[in-house]
Design a protein around this nucleic acid. Structure first.
Lengths: 363, 363
DNA sequence: CCGAGCCGGGAAAGCGCATTCCCTTTGCCT
DNA sequence: AGGCAAAGGGAATGCGCTTTCCCGGCTCGG
């Protein structure tokens, strides 16, 4: 027994396929009540399931939304994916997933695959990058995306437009105020105490990372603090860990000379990792070297990843409405783009940057 | 300019659509070199992208793999999803995502939607359940799945078969040794010290949770320990937190009478939460009540979620190769099911269940 | 009372592609 | 040199559905 078709249903109901089609989907023309009932009865006695491919072919639209992320297991992307999924579901669409590890060449392939499947919209969640090695890939990606748009596709990208893509209709950019928020974070941190700041950033050229670094520096400048040193590393937990190891050595070296007085340099070190996962990695590194947070160093991240909120000391960070970002991106690309309310976040200071040692475990 | 078709390419190349089709896909028949080149040149001068819907219609197979999870933002599912995605990618397929919060009715809809899209295979990752309220939904889900299978679909389910589904060809169950591993965990924990065990479990009827509870109890029994009390709560962080609050009160009450001697009851309390996320929630609750782990209570989880590994005190748990599970499920359903190597995990004891207070921060 | 208009139903033409079947051409063997 | 097999190219069919277009019967107005 192979899947039954609309024709089978029509035959069983004793009507034409055209009529059956009109009954079983929201057509403009409403067949008579009796006929409709007959068709519907036939349909579910046969267990009829419309062939979405055929429907798509006939209507040239698929009800599919393509989502491109670096890594679905990364909680940052997982959170965004949840928002996308949710919005898609509300619209009766399904989401098609592609992971690319951030490689523009792979992203280009993903876009092509989505285009092949006639996805109604594409949401690109991964950070853009301008690293030299990505140049060609970026160009191809931009071209592919352009073609997709020109053929009527909608695309929403989180953060920054794809490098080199022209702004055509159906191309939406969901701006995330990374720079501004990082500046706010720097201000609050600088106001809270006299620190020596160090930034753990991703590879140069990664927009999200660069924005946050730039914002942080400008926030520092505004507060009258000197610019922070920037350590470049991988944009993940392991990168954060490596940087943490380096910093740990430095901190210990700074503590050693005075020997008795831990607060040798009048300033404590304050680390800003450009995302929470890196911050956690760095914190783990410090701890593994016997250093304590916030006693020997303070640390802040960015994103406010939910799974990491139970981490102790609680991580100071910048809250980003990740799920909402995914949702908005989807709506903007594929939906009745209601109020295009901009994305906002907020600085969330917690224990990991508390200068003085409180006793409570709260927060 | 709308997407160009195979016919366009053929016309430009001066050949028939049949030939163009043969060139651009791996057909059995190989057109001549010169013609092939001409077609290929025409194809990419037009930026031709084959219409996967049409291809699917013609070949009746879509290159799609449906994945059903409870919540993609849950790190457990995210990890499995990564494995699925990876395996799918290797096979040149794409994954279609559906999240259902574990509701069988939603899962049934997801299966129907996958069937409509003619997905080649469906991977169901969420735990099965036999809660009374789910009864009808389960039946419908089983029916839908049966139909899908009979029409030639492949399905792989992680853990347990869907309740009520008959075993037809193309129906694969990836067994996870939850019970056995939970028993091992119980043995090791019981051997490590004389504890009073308490289990924080999910709602009764949730297979994964029930298996782990049953396994843990039998491990306890084998070690000669009395059965543990079971606290039922939600299968997520918040459920763990609530249970933790309850337990915290109890622990404090037990400590209070003796007043001076913290080790009043000769046995410390050892909590087993049926998954890591719940364990973290419970730990957070204890801590918020001023209790310390492992001093005032020890705790273990299950899954060994990667994102949670930097949590301190490091959580004792049972490692499960989540990514591999997703991968295997996919391969088994959609692939050249090579070696059907069973899934194995292992107990991983860390600081959170250390009876004695070591000084190092390692592990 | 008759024609204009409308409404509900059916026939048929694709949507873009794979594939079967047929025909021509080429190469090879006897 | 004649015959045949194999190979390579094309016309046509169909995958399952939507959607025009058409047609018969109905109602309503003049």
């Amino acid at each position: 027994m192979v899947a039954s078709t609309l024709t089978d249903v029509a035959r069983l109901a004793g009507v034409s396929p055209a009529t059956a089609s009109r009954v079983l989907n929201g057509s403009a023309r409403k067949p008579g009540q009796d006929i409709a009932d007959r068709v519907r009865k036939a349909a579910d006695s046969l267990g009829y399931i419309p062939n979405a491919q055929a429907q798509g072919l006939a209507k040239s639209s698929s009800g599919l939304i393509g989502l491109i992320v670096h890594d679905i297991a990364d909680p940052y992307f997982a959170a965004i994916a949840r928002g996308v999924q949710e919005a898609a579901r509300e619209q009766g669409r399904m989401v098609l997933l592609a992971t690319t590890a951030g490689a523009p060449a792979d992203e280009k392939e993903a876009v092509a695959a989505f285009a092949a499947r006639r996805a109604d919209a594409i949401v690109i969640a991964g950070s853009r990058s301008v690293r030299p090695g990505d140049h060609d890939g970026n160009a191809e990606l931009a071209a592919e995306l352009d073609r997709y748009c020109r053929n009527g596709g909608q695309v929403a990208v989180v953060g920054h437009p794809v490098v080199g893509s022209s702004v055509c209709e159906g191309y939406h950019v969901l701006t995330v105020p990374n720079e501004e928020l990082a500046a706010n974070l720097a201000s609050e941190l600088a106001a809270a105490g006299d620190h020596q700041f160090v930034i753990i950033g991703g590879p140069a050229g990664l927009f999200t990372s660069d924005d946050r670094i730039r914002g942080f520096q400008s926030g520092l400048a505004a507060a009258g603090s000197p610019a922070a040193e920037v350590i470049r590393t991988d944009f993940n937990r392991s990168g954060g860990f490596d940087a943490g190891v380096t910093l740990a050595a430095r901190i210990k070296a700074a503590q050693a000379p005075a020997d008795t007085a831990p607060a040798q340099s009048s300033q404590g070190i304050c680390i800003f990792a450009v995302n929470d996962v890196m911050a956690i990695g760095a914190a783990a590194a410090l701890r593994s070297k016997g250093l304590r947070i916030p006693r020997d160093a303070t640390i802040a991240g960015f994103d406010d990843i939910e799974t990491l909120r139970d981490f102790r000391p609680a991580l100071s960070t910048v809250h980003l409405p990740l799920e909402e970002i995914g949702r908005q991106a989807t709506l903007r690309a594929a939906g009745t783009a209601q109020d295009d309310r901009p994305i906002t976040g907020h600085v969330t200071l917690r224990r990991s940057t508390e200068a003085t040692f409180h006793s409570g475990a709260a927060n």
